[in-house]
């Protein structure tokens, strides 16, 4: 592409540049790739001169294909806000659409999570004499666990049945969504951590438990289902903290001590290995989803 120097392609709606012949040839042959392809698509809609130039560099069959491609692009409505944001940060368009269909990325969920975290931070901050922000550290790992749980599975994904019979590997889809949710949830948690500067690195002791809980919840999902698995893992986490509180007078509970962090890291690694081992089982629907109780035999 080049700046508007080609005066033999005048156009009433001057866009400030024109597509050069090489790109036009690549366009008609279907060899132009995004994002340049998108720019050319958009420009051809506006520039009569470039459309005429396109006809000159094309053979008729290739030209028809080019017009068909342009028609299809014109048919495509503009992506939504989440999707536009993902495209803007460089996510491939097909991955962006898969992520836009992830329930957890919806605004309401994000707002709810943020509200819970703000309340927690406020509560922890109010305990100015506490040696450890225990409430925050206990709650923060549960958020990514819950987020991943609601991003995949029949209960909250309205298109689950269509998704599970698609050729896209279920585990790949799960990982795409999990990474997106983790980035989001860990980001929110990270921002909340910044609100607790007085605790230094101790305020980051939620990170490894968050990874361990999420990986364990996912690894158990094929066996226990997408609701029971994270619920049990979350319950086990709360139980562990309750036991730790009951058995020590220390301000910092065991999972948030250096020794506890090592154990948590080991759990995260083991769960990740188990998750990889059961990856093919995400390609099949949980039988319970379509049980006789549905009355749809």
């Amino acid at each position: 592409m080049r700046a508007h120097e080609n005066h033999d392609r005048p156009d009433a709606r001057d866009t400030g540049w024109h597509v050069d012949d090489e790109d036009l040839r690549a366009y008609v042959q279907g060899e132009l790739t995004a994002p340049r392809l998108w720019s050319v698509d958009t420009h051809l809609v506006a520039c009569d001169g470039c459309r005429r130039a396109l006809a000159e560099v094309s053979d008729p069959v290739a030209l028809d294909m080019g017009w068909a491609r342009l028609d299809a692009e014109l048919d495509a409505p503009r992506p939504g806000r989440v999707e536009s944001l993902l495209l803007w940060i460089g996510v491939a368009d097909h991955t962006a659409r898969l992520l836009a269909a992830t329930p957890v990325l919806r605004r309401a969920w994000l707002v709810a999570v943020s509200a819970v975290l703000l309340l927690t931070v406020a509560a922890s901050s109010s305990l100015r004499d506490a040696a450890s922000p225990t409430l925050f550290l206990a709650l923060a790992p549960l958020l990514p666990l819950a987020g991943v749980a609601v991003s995949y599975g029949p209960a909250l994904d309205p298109t689950y049945e269509m998704t599970v019979v698609s050729p896209v590997h279920g585990f790949r889809l799960l990982m795409i969504r999990t990474v997106a949710v983790l980035v989001l949830a860990l980001g929110v948690n990270g921002l909340a951590t910044l609100a607790l500067p007085g605790y230094g690195l101790r305020a980051l002791a939620w990170l490894l438990p968050a990874l361990a809980l999420t990986a364990t919840g996912l690894a158990l999902t094929p066996r226990l289902g997408p609701v029971l698995a994270p619920a049990l893992v979350g319950g086990a986490w709360v139980g562990t903290l309750a036991v730790a509180r009951a058995t020590t007078d220390e301000a910092t509970l065991l999972p948030f001590t250096p020794a506890g962090q090592v154990i948590t890291a080991a759990v995260a690694v083991l769960a990740a290995v188990l998750l990889y081992h059961v990856r093919d089982r995400f390609d099949l629907t949980a039988r319970a989803r379509f049980g006789a109780a549905d009355g749809v035999l």
Binding site: L37, D71, E73, D75, H94, L98, T159, M162, V168
Partner: peptide, 16 residues
């Protein structure tokens, strides 16, 4: 979205 689930990753071909 369903076309993407059916492994159609080329944007132009998919939109067509």
């Amino acid at each position: 979205y369903v076309a993407i689930l059916k492994e159609m990753t080329d944007r132009s071909a998919r939109h067509r």
